[in-house]
Amino acid sequence: MYQLLIKTFVRDYKNTENAHVREQYGTVCSIISIVCNIVLVVFKLIFGTLVHSVSIVADGYNNLSDAGSNIATFFGFKLANKHPDAEHPYGHGRFEYITGLGISFLIILVGLMSLKDAVLKLFNPEAVKFSVPALIALIFSVLVKIWMGYFNRKAGKEINSTALEAAAQDSMNDVMATSATIVALVASLVTDLPVDSLIGAAVSVVVVISGISIAKSTIDPLLGIKPDPETIKEIENYLMSYDCVMGIHDLMMHDYGPGRRYLTVHCEVDASIDMMTTHDEIDNIERAMMEKFHILTTIHMDPIDIHDTLTNDLRDKVTSIVESIDSSLSIHDFRIVRGPTHTNLVFDVLMKDDKYSKKELNKLITSKVKEMNTTYYCVINFEYSFV
């Protein structure tokens, strides 16, 4: 059913990195969820009225609020796919994260309200009366919500959408809550214990925890989370596959919403090759990055002298010195400036953690370099990795 609906209503459904395709996924999922929730609302209101069940009618109104969150998701995807404008040159992709954040807050609110009601009923228990019509309505609701949860979760994983993941979790929370009601309804046949309240309290806690988890997953990209290490490794290997690229550093990735990533990176190139030729190759790499990874890439060229024997020899020795201090350290942008009385060794050191302070590292590296030659002076710039 999932594949049939996606293939029918989403054009080019396999191209999940494309912003328009993502919008189609979000639209399809939102409309299906809205329709399912409205069906549940109508079914429960009619059924509840016919059998005079207040609980079924109340659950129907709860599904009406679920439809409201689905409408928010629908508009979230529409807004996220708006073209960049003068005020928002990086686009509106983060609307999708904001939608997921809103749903997560709604989940937390519902969980807390349910927890309050469950605790109050523990102290003032109400008798739960078994009803076959009520049982049928609840089971039907569970089956529909399970399918909705499956559909949204699968689509959410396909396009890596926190908004759809949040919608899926919202459906599964309803499944847990309704299942708890079913258990309490059946238990009322054999016991007078407040099973309904106990199970309701436990489910409410799970709902609140899931809401917090979803909130974190949507807040992280809004704040600027560290990129996926596997993706960065793949990008680094791809860049290094080009003959003109001799080394890379200062790689930074910015996420402005799914399908709207921006990358800046420094690529070391041979200084002896004509810069116009190298520049043309770099332009080709930037275009290839967009085609392969759907990332708008800006590459800064760092010309390095690879034919000077002394520079190469000192670069290798300084690299060994830095790595002997800590294997996680690395150097780049190495060059030398010769003078009549001394030679400056200018380079950057990339730090992965705070095992050493910059002052300590500078002292250690300088002292070891001085052991090679007292006329060598280190000019070091320390920086942290952005990935």
Score class of each variant (00 low, 15 high):
R261F: 07
F74N: 13
S320P: 05
R22D: 08
M172P: 01
D354E: 15
I32N: 02
E234V: 10
L193E: 14
V208M: 10
S171F: 03
D250Y: 02
M1F: 11
T218Y: 11
M275C: 04
H332N: 13
D354A: 09
F130D: 13
T181V: 15
L79D: 06
T311K: 10
V206L: 15
M113N: 15
V183E: 03
H83I: 08
Y356S: 13
A118T: 02
I71G: 00
D313V: 02
M301I: 09
I31T: 01
I46R: 01
E268C: 07
F95T: 01
L345F: 05
D243G: 00
T178M: 06
N18R: 03
H249M: 11
N62S: 10
N124Y: 09
F151S: 05
I146D: 00
K370T: 07
I159S: 05
G60T: 15
K14C: 09
T8K: 09
V183Y: 01
F43T: 06
A80P: 07
Y242D: 13
C29N: 08
I325M: 07
Y61P: 05
S131P: 05
L122M: 12
D326K: 13
L364V: 08
F74K: 00
R261W: 07
A187G: 04
I232L: 09
S241Y: 15
V379C: 10
V41K: 11
V269F: 02
K317V: 08
S210Y: 00
A202P: 01
E23V: 04
G339D: 10
E383P: 02
D333E: 14
A166V: 06
K370E: 11
I159M: 12
K44Q: 14
S330H: 05
N81C: 14
L64F: 11
A127D: 07
L164R: 06
T8A: 12
A168W: 05
Y2T: 12
A137P: 09
M289C: 13
N81K: 10
S213W: 03
V203W: 01
M290F: 12
L329H: 04
K216S: 12
N381M: 13
Y25Q: 02
F9H: 03
V369A: 14
V10N: 05
G91R: 01
H83E: 14
L40H: 01
S367P: 08
I306V: 13
I336F: 05
E96T: 12
T319N: 15
I6G: 11
T278D: 04
H20I: 03
V203F: 05
H332I: 00
V195P: 13
V207R: 02
H52A: 14
L361C: 07
Y2F: 15
I235Q: 04
V206C: 15
E126Q: 13
V21I: 08
E236W: 04
E165F: 04
E96N: 15
V21H: 03
R338Y: 08
V195K: 06
I71A: 04
T264H: 05
H266T: 10
I304W: 03
G93H: 03
F334M: 04
D196E: 14
E286H: 05
M351C: 12
